[in-house]
Write a protein that binds this DNA or RNA. Structure first.
Lengths: 349, 349
DNA sequence: AAAGAATATCGAAGCGGTTCGAAAAGAGTG
DNA sequence: CACTCTTTTCGAACCGCTTCGATATTCTTT
């Protein structure tokens, strides 16, 4: 078994000192081109790779980025956070980082502090989704760069990567308006969630821009949650008022599907007669009939953006706070009545 | 900003030497109970945690387990491998390891060797799914412990964690038999896949155990792939022979759904008249009507088993090869006609 | 050509642990 | 009580790399 080469071997064989080899390794200035070339040759020859551990110990950089998500978020059926994680994973590779994933419970508990924090084994932390304030405070205390995903904190200035919720609502309402709808209802579910609120605001703003009335009886904001059943109940209300909506925009797909469920059960033809658009682009939207039109969120990009930002923060040692907004896209399927010909195709897909 | 305590601080404050503190830290023998207690007290007092990097450098253990999955496997719509990964993640935590995930292409390429291997930053590697032989050979050369998940290698002796495919088939066929079916068809799709083959063998064996004939015209093994369309085509054949099956067992859910599709289109009532059981328990099985009965595979357990095994291998420095078989479960829903009362409940779920 | 500035290279001191052999302290024994 | 044999504790070397200050070299400038 061949011995694994160390920087010493490279130094000896190249007739340069340890220090010079190290400088080459790290692409630092003040090394002659000759030296650089020669050292690099030897490195290739030996198949040398510096050890993470040794490097980390000496340089106080672990080369890892922590990724924290609350257990309730992560274990949800929808792979939203899984996708975000994958996004970070792939982007991290480009920047030569590894992602260390850990779930914690929502509220801060010292007993749950991730090992990578205790062991000083992460150069920064990405947090996905809403999380207890204590967590963020803890990491700020440790002077670790932090990037939030899909969760903004008004109190403390922390960098964040967010979904463009308002633009999503705008896309949906615009699309409905352009298809001739004017009585457009909105199912918010629970307005205390910041994303939902933004979607609501986007809805209102767009309605007004088109000179349309935001009718109170066509907006449901009083649910406890934002589940399918809430959409069902909301539809119950929306469709029993005088002059019911000809289109519904739901703040998420689950509620949109609940809404469709009610409509189908009560003889309102989804798509043809009345349009429905959701938000999130969950799998289930593909399995309902007609398939749900929705606003697609590029989860992977949320992740990759966060890593890119994190890499900058670590490199520049800056603590400048930035907020990145990731664009969404309108996905037109059959539930909004403007893509009828595709309706039959999807069946076997 | 308080300075981060080191082992030296602990030593000084406790009036023991570095070495003794280190022994306590690692739960090594030959330390008096008194010393152990006192050192531990100081550790708590100081909130001391050894640094991964320092530890790793000195002990030649990274504390990481690499997780390799081919990109084509990992980017599939079904979260099979994602779940496996999560399984490893959670189990790893218990053993104080971190999982470093990387995707590679199926065939071995030196340009794609994961960084954690080059940088000697993993104590072992878990590989999920079929992968090019070169990869495994490479890791064996590096003398790294390897555990395969859902993929066994006949040539080289490598530990593996496998799904109990045969038992799954047994469960399915037994259930159908117990519900009075005797003409039970099987849709294999592509038999070159080892899992499919095992399922086929389980099917045959169980049929014979019940004294039932394995009719060639009720078994489809000639597809190129194992997708929904293959199930559809298989059904086309199965249901146009004399004495068609009263029950179908498909080697995976996708094909089972395709089969159901055909049946529904051609007036064969699924569940009531003819039973269908799939394999894998994919999401989509919940969204078809009637919902698909299937064999559930505990993906997380595949992952956690692999990590447990890996932890053993690292600890014991053993290279004993083990094969762990993870049991599967029969999930009875409505497509096999024996759970009718639940049929209406699932609608809103 | 000499002095000064800029650039290359090097030596040595860490980084924060583990580990091994030696020394010290206890325990057991005749 | 002196003498082994264990058990406990300790000192020092070392893991593989970075970094800083010192030294050597080359380039400018006058």
């Amino acid at each position: 078994m061949k011995k694994i080469p160390t920087i010493r071997d490279v130094a000896q064989r190249s007739n340069y000192s340890l220090s010079t080899v190290s400088l080459v390794l790290n692409n630092k200035p003040n090394v002659s081109e000759t030296a650089r070339r020669e050292v690099r040759t030897i490195i290739d020859e030996l198949g040398y790779h510096p050890r993470r551990n040794a490097r980390g110990l000496a340089s106080h950089h672990s080369g890892n980025i922590g990724f924290i998500v609350t257990d309730d978020h992560f274990s949800r059926a929808e792979p939203f956070y899984t996708k975000i994680f994958l996004g970070t994973e792939f982007e991290a590779r480009k920047h030569n980082y590894y992602i260390l994933l850990t779930t914690v419970s929502r509220s801060f508990r010292t007993s749950e502090i991730p090992r990578f924090l205790l062991e000083h084994n992460a150069d920064g932390v990405i947090v996905a989704g809403e999380i207890g304030n204590g967590w963020i405070e803890y990491m700020m205390e440790q002077r670790l760069p932090v990037v939030l995903i899909d969760y903004a904190l008004s109190r403390r200035p922390v960098s964040a990567v967010l979904i463009d919720n308002e633009a999503g609502a705008r896309l949906a309402v615009d699309h409905l308006y352009n298809n001739g709808h004017t009585r457009i209802g909105f199912i918010a579910g629970n307005m205390s969630h910041p994303s939902i609120r933004s979607r609501y605001e986007g809805y209102c703003e767009t309605m007004m821009r088109h000179g349309l009335l935001v009718r109170r009886d066509l907006v449901c904001t009083d649910a406890e949650t934002t589940a399918q059943a809430d959409g069902y109940r909301a539809a119950q209300r929306l469709f029993t008022v005088p002059a019911p909506p000809t289109a519904v925009f739901a703040a998420n797909d689950a509620m949109a599907i609940g809404c469709m469920q009610f409509m189908k059960e009560h003889g309102v033809t989804v798509g043809e007669q009345t349009a429905v658009i959701g938000f999130d682009n969950i799998e289930a939207g593909l399995h309902v009939a007609p398939r749900l039109s929705t606003i697609g969120v590029p989860c992977e990009e949320l992740g990759s953006n966060a890593v890119r930002r994190m890499a900058e923060m670590i490199r520049d040692k800056t603590s400048v706070v930035t907020t990145t907004v990731v664009p969404v896209e309108l996905i037109v399927r059959e539930s909004c009545g403007s893509n009828r010909q595709a309706a039959s195709v999807g069946a076997l897909s």
